[in-house]
Simulated assay, not measured.
Amino acid sequence: MSDIENRCRLVLIAPPMDDPDAARELIAGALRGGDVASVILPQYGLDERAFQDVAEAVVPLVQKAGAAAMVAGDSRIAARSKADGLHVDGGRDVLADAIERFSPGMMVGAGRAKDRHSALEIGELRPDYVFFGKLDGDIKAEPHPRNLALAEWWASMVEIPCIVMGGRDISSVVEIAQSGAEFVALRDAVFAEPGAAAIKVTEANALLDEKAPRFGD
Score class of each variant (00 low, 15 high):
Met1His: 13
Asp3Thr: 15
Arg7Phe: 00
Arg7His: 00
Cys8Lys: 02
Arg9Asp: 08
Leu10Arg: 03
Val11Gly: 06
Leu12Ser: 13
Ala14Lys: 09
Pro16Thr: 06
Asp18Gln: 06
Asp21Pro: 04
Ala22Tyr: 01
Ala23Ser: 11
Glu25Arg: 15
Ile27Pro: 04
Gly33Tyr: 08
Gly34Cys: 14
Asp35Val: 13
Tyr44Cys: 03
Tyr44Asn: 11
Leu46Phe: 15
Leu46Lys: 14
Glu48Phe: 15
Phe51Lys: 02
Val59Leu: 04
Pro60Gly: 08
Val62Ser: 07
Gln63Ala: 03
Lys64Gln: 12
Ala65Met: 04
Gly66Pro: 12
Gly66Asn: 05
Gly66Thr: 03
Gly66Lys: 08
Gly66Leu: 00
Gly66Val: 01
Ala68Cys: 09
Ala72Gln: 05
Ala72Ser: 12
Ala72Phe: 03
Ala72Thr: 09
Ser75Asn: 09
Ser75Ala: 15
Ile77Pro: 01
Ala78Met: 15
Ala78Asn: 10
Arg80Ser: 15
Arg80Pro: 02
Ser81Val: 07
Ser81Pro: 09
Lys82Leu: 10
Leu86Asn: 09
Leu86Trp: 08
Leu86Asp: 00
Val88Pro: 06
Leu95Arg: 02
Leu95Ala: 08
Ala98His: 06
Ser103Met: 07
Gly105Arg: 05
Met106Val: 12
Met107Glu: 14
Gly111Val: 00
Arg112Phe: 04
Asp115Met: 09
Leu120Gly: 09
Leu120Lys: 06
Gly123Ile: 06
Leu125Glu: 00
Arg126Ala: 02
Arg126Val: 02
Pro127Leu: 04
Asp128Asn: 12
Tyr129Arg: 00
Tyr129Gln: 01
Tyr129Cys: 05
Tyr129Val: 03
Phe131Asn: 00
Phe131Leu: 05
Phe132Cys: 00
Asp136Ser: 14
Ile139Glu: 12
Lys140Met: 11
Glu142Arg: 13
Pro143Lys: 02
His144Phe: 11
Leu150Thr: 01
Leu150Val: 02
Trp153Ile: 04
Trp153Thr: 02
Ala155Tyr: 11
Ala155Asn: 12
Ser156Phe: 10
Met157Ser: 13
Ile160Pro: 13
Cys162Asp: 06
Cys162Gln: 01
Val164Asp: 04
Met165Ala: 15
Met165Asp: 12
Arg168His: 11
Ile170Lys: 04
Ser171His: 15
Glu175Met: 13
Ile176Gln: 10
Ile176Ser: 11
Ser179Tyr: 03
Glu182Leu: 07
Glu182Asp: 02
Phe183Met: 10
Phe183Arg: 05
Leu186Asn: 06
Leu186His: 09
Asp188Trp: 11
Phe191Gly: 05
Gly195Thr: 06
Gly195Gln: 02
Gly195Ser: 05
Ala196Ser: 11
Ala198Pro: 02
Ile199Asp: 14
Lys200Pro: 01
Glu203Leu: 12
Ala204Glu: 07
Ala206Met: 09
Asp209Cys: 04
Glu210Trp: 11
Ala212Tyr: 02
Phe215Asn: 06
Phe215Arg: 10
Asp217Leu: 06
